[in-house]
């Protein structure tokens, strides 16, 4: 008996440790990002970091063009992905005939499975030339091209989370509205969507969070020019995002150089942004009350 209770105790501690490892990793990640970025904050003044020029070879580390680049690409992606994703989720949950759903759901899983480097590759070879021809711009490697692909990458997240939220709306809501003579669309628009709104909001936040962190695709198709977009037309010019900057330059910098540390400054900013977005999304989820389970009776 003694032996078995030690065993029980050991197992419980072991799985608890596995749970704790999640916390440990977050702290480790944060610690290492801080450790490697602090010299960057020391070498480059805050004023310089917020500067408009990113020319590391000349010792200029202004992050503004990168931040603006990321924002532009992500905003562009959001404008396309949010309505498209929500519409697709509504289609799957409320409108589509059974067979269309059976086709669409696995396809969306396929989309979620396509590695970002493959999407970037297709973007370079197929999408960029079309964008160049359509816009008459000198190159097809533009913020817009990146937005388009990012929208595609954010879609699976948005669709699946939003669809779950719509599905979770009790049938009685729908029946009630339909019984009062509402059309199916009115029911969806006035009853179901408002009831599912917190889930839909979560879907959108998670989709955008996914887009902000995306690296390879944007690096391959946005042209990587570190200039600040100023007009809406700049959507059709090259930009450079925060993620792409890290990926493109980390391989070439000397370890412990200022450039190296500033890349970690970008990294920790991305960490914090994604943390805030995901926390916000999580709070929405946490708020849903949980009922305690009862033992058989």
């Amino acid at each position: 008996m003694k032996k078995s209770s030690w065993w029980e105790f050991g197992i419980e501690r072991a799985v608890q440790l596995a749970g704790v490892s999640a916390i440990v990793f977050v702290i480790l990640i944060l610690l290492f990002l801080i450790r490697e970025s602090v010299p960057g904050f020391a070498d480059v003044s805050p004023g310089e970091l917020l500067g408009e020029r990113w020319y590391p070879t000349e010792g200029r580390y202004g992050l503004l063009p990168l931040i603006a680049g990321s924002l532009l690409v992500v905003l562009g992606a959001a404008v396309m992905a949010l309505p498209l994703g929500l519409a697709t989720a509504i289609f799957v949950a409320e409108v589509s005939p059974r067979w269309a759903r059976e086709v669409l759901k696995p396809l969306i899983e396929v989309l979620a499975g396509i590695p970002s480097v493959v999407l970037g590759f297709i973007g370079m070879l197929v999408l960029a030339p079309s964008v160049r021809i359509l816009t008459g711009a000198p190159t097809g490697l533009t913020a817009f091209t990146g937005s388009l692909l990012l929208a595609l990458m954010a879609l699976p997240t948005i669709v699946s989370v939003a669809e779950d939220a719509i599905d979770a709306v009790p049938k009685s809501y729908r029946d009630g509205a339909l019984a009062l003579g509402a059309t199916r669309w009115q029911t969806t628009w006035r009853v179901v969507l408002p009831a599912a709104r917190s889930g839909i909001l979560t879907a959108m936040m998670l989709g955008i969070g996914r887009a902000i962190g995306e690296t390879m695709t944007v690096m391959m198709v946005t042209g990587n020019a570190a200039r600040i977009p100023k007009r809406i037309g700049d959507l059709f010019y090259p930009v450079r995002t925060m993620t792409a900057t890290i990926a493109a330059e980390m391989g070439e910098v000397a370890q412990a150089s200022t450039h190296y540390h500033v890349l970690f400054v970008i990294g920790i900013s991305l960490f914090l942004i994604s943390f805030l977005i995901n926390l916000a999304a999580a709070i929405v989820v946490f708020r849903q009350a949980r009922r305690s389970e009862r033992v058989l009776s």
Partner: peptide
């Protein structure tokens, strides 16, 4: 789950 993959690379 939310940390960008490139940040994992840095880490």
């Amino acid at each position: 789950a939310g940390i960008p993959s490139v940040v994992y690379g840095l880490f």
